[in-house]
Design a protein around this nucleic acid. Sequence first.
DNA 1: CACCCTCGAGTTCA
DNA 2: CTCGAGGGTG
Length: 746
Amino acid sequence: MTESAAESLHAAAEESATLTERILAARDAYYDRNQPAIADAEYDALVRRLEELERLFPELQSQDSPTQTVGGRAETTLFDPVQHAERMLSLDNVFSVPEFLDWADKAERDSGRSVHYLCELKIDGLAINLRYENGVLVTAATRGDGVVGEDVTENIEFVPGIPRRLAGTGHPPLMEVRGEVFFPVRSFAELNADQVKAGERVFANARNAASGSLRQKASTKTPAQLGLMKARLGRLRMLVHGIGAWERPAASEQSEVYAILAGWGLPTSEYFRVTRSKTEAADFIEYYGENRARVSHEIDGIVIKIDELELHAELGATNRAPRWAIAYKYPPEQVNTKLRDIVVSVGRTGRATPFAVMDKVRVAGSEVRQATLHNQDVVRAKGILIGDTIVLRKAGDVIPEVLGPVVELRDGTEREFVMPSNCPECGTPLAPAKEGDIDLRCPNARSCPAQVRGRVEHIGSRGGLDIEVLGEVAAAALTQPTVPADPPLPTEAGLFDLQLADLLPIQVVVRDAETGLPKEDDDGTARQRMPFQRSPTAAEKKQGRTGPQPSSSALKLLAEIDKARTKPLWRILVSLNIRHVGPVAARALANHFGSLSAIRTATREELAEVDGVGGIIAEAVLDWFQVDWHVDIVDRWTAAGVQFSTPGHPGPGAAETAGGVLSGLTVVATGSLEGFTREGAQEAIIAAGGKSASSVSKNTDYVAAGPGAGSKLAKAEGLGIRILDADEFRLLLAEGPRAVTPGVIS
DNA sequence: CACCCTCGAGTTCA
DNA sequence: CTCGAGGGTG
């Protein structure tokens, strides 16, 4: 994080703390005294501002934020209120190491001596206060507003590891123990498996699930539900992280208190460390920032406490938080946002895919507005409604994934998503491709704009004919421009007939990069752009060329299309968009048959002989040629000079090209290998007679890994596969496996 | 019948 | 880069 980002985060944190206080005070006044202290409109404005801040800075979202609770204390009507003997404070937050060091400096200055720091993990769970009297558990209560919480004693008894009676001796007459109740990662997964089995909804988020589990009322349950409820509570765990009221603890350090509590049978965390210096504490922060996944429960930060109890009393507390402890908050991996709509898009294969449109939110380092929902069953299984507050994360730190709704925050205005019955682009009724398929498809493959656009884009893509310029934008411009009315490419059949004169008049709507909505001119009409022409330069005008000139991308596009006519057969095959025929199957077919005509005249059995091709792919190939407009594509491309054969290929069934130093070996290339492009590395493997695979398995012989390699490298290490750097990879390609010494991990 | 693999789709970054 | 779906192979 840059320093200025940390600063604005800090400013936002302070503003959000102030807002939280004002909102809670207003709520108190409204619900408890039945006298609104501020106007409704003002209250709403405060909440909206807080929501906005939390969206901008997800770090600020916390379990006790007023945006995370439905107005007032509706829950306390179900549970008896319990007054904590000593107020449960929250902690002040820092978001960067320099900020933490500043806090530590000040604490050391105020203490007038060097101190020890007790570093512990900040568990993402539900804060609980256990009250023991003479060693016997009397009440367990949630945090509530810090002064009064909810009595969950009945439920806590089913949570394993919490002693009803303390072990050992010397228990104080009154003692409050503070801790966190949570689902360990493992238990949470098991819980959701149980939920699915019981036909209940899946929980999106472990913290909400913990909170919900503890707030169940046994008295409202049927015997069967009661069993489920006890099973749920049985998966919860608690760890102790502090004390409240306690008459003269016989200890001088916080860490010693933990030892005493552990001696009495209370569960304390195994992850903690006492350090002598603030820099060691910063190391602890950084270590767990990188190793969050290694901990058995979710953490949202680190808590650092001054270990000396004497100083706790000296430093005291503000009215919100103690001065002797601070929470370092990690950027969250999960955030909440608002689900504005669920929209359906149609891809090149006609598959209709619903995706979530959300309020833009920052998660795991990038801004996210959309996330795929796969199909209508997934939408139903996740239980999300349009208008819900939803939990979002990045799967594998890259792909945004909607986990589920925060049911508690519904206000009744949410509505269910209904899968449209017609294609959103061309209006054709959607239907499953075959009986029992979940996916719905638009059957109008030939002229559905979304499908034509998708296919043309696919032709231009790197796995296809690799035509520069022909990406998403150009594909849309060629297949559905606003002018001319008849697009240059009603289907891909005319791709190789494109002339400059076809490109020049093309006009497209200018869209906002963020929203995807057309931009409007001052007069309210949609703004247009002509991507394939430019105005003449002064020099050109002098030469009498006063008309519009082709833009460089127009010339580039035509040159690239021209080059594509003679690209390898497998690329042409991929460009035909035959179901199940991607780069791998296309290569296998091209190698075996050598020409499209040989493929076309082959029988099902002959096709299925090819390595990597079975009955289904063979069928898909044969079916493809049964469609008139598909054949029309081949005919027109042929007429335009596209080469549908591999020059010099001996013909169908000829011995597969064997030999080469990598013959019989499978190699996976990952990360950025110096001197190779991603494609280039794969080509080089194949050229050397090896097999280039896309994922690592136990069949993999070598993994060539450069900087930036991720999960594949990790998996290879786990399987004990020989890993090569770029130089070793080059050596392998040139001289074969003997050149690289086996078993040496570089 | 297990695996193992490819396909297809979505997404955001530099 | 990851996931789910579904095909291919031993």
